[in-house]
């Protein structure tokens, strides 16, 4: 061992802390012994480094929006340059297949239209079931706002599939207004103005 220490010191040409040299020598011996006996330790340092970076990145990008927009094949939201953030409000989703209040299915959409049996009358734009549930939800929200001393803004956020026909949108918006919604916002994926446009092939 003493020879090894001297060799290492000679190789480096510098003063070496005997403790460091001893430690290095011990590790070398340990590595030789382990190799001989078929025992080795997995070096996890690189993996831990990588995981730390990933976790930090994911925590930073973790979205704590008051409304969760879960895009799927039936719900692809449009893009907008607006930078108005999402606000805690009643969420009404219009997907390709249904109209939903928060997570509750209200009425189905078949071939891009709401069945007239789910409307107040054939000519009406009001969806009675949505109106009733929305009124209940708004009353609940008003009660909470009163108790918490917050303003009751009667806001609804519409999470609308980009292919939704205008007719269905107007039916839902008219129903929301009738139920007492005073402000409406559309959820959209934020995009920048002035971005380079990708041309279709």
């Amino acid at each position: 061992m003493a020879e090894n220490i001297e060799n290492l010191a000679a190789e480096n040409g510098d003063f070496l802390d005997p403790y460091v040299v001893k430690k290095k020598e011990r590790r070398r011996q340990k590595a030789i012994t382990e190799r001989i006996e078929g025992e080795f330790e997995l070096n996890l340092n690189a993996m831990i480094d990588m995981m730390t970076v990933l976790v930090t990145f994911l925590i930073q990008s973790f979205n704590a929006d008051p409304i969760t927009v879960n895009e799927s094949a039936d719900l692809r939201i449009a893009k907008s340059t607006s930078d108005l953030p999402l606000k805690d409000s009643v969420a009404i989703s219009i997907t390709k297949k249904s109209v939903m209040l928060q997570d509750d299915l209200i009425v189905p959409i078949v071939e891009g239209a709401i069945d007239p049996s789910n409307l107040q009358s054939a000519e009406s734009s009001i969806i009675p079931l949505l109106q009733q549930k929305l009124q209940e939800r708004l009353e609940q929200n008003s009660m909470w706002a009163k108790q918490l001393g917050r303003p009751d803004d009667r806001l609804a956020t519409l999470i609308v599939d980009k292919d939704t026909p205008y007719k269905v949108l107007i039916q839902v918006m008219t129903t929301a207004s009738t139920a007492g919604v005073q402000n409406i916002r559309f959820a959209a994926t934020k995009r920048g103005q002035g971005a380079v446009v990708k041309k279709a092939p």
């Binding site: 976790v55 994911l58 990008s61 973790f62 409304i67 907008s80 005073q182 916002r185």
Partner: peptide, 20 residues
């Protein structure tokens, strides 16, 4: 957990007045 719950696109809103 973070990978499954991550929403990498930012959602904004557009304010409109009700259909009248």
């Amino acid at each position: 957990f973070l990978i499954f719950t991550a929403v990498l696109s930012e959602t904004s809103t557009l304010e409109v007045t009700s259909a009248k």
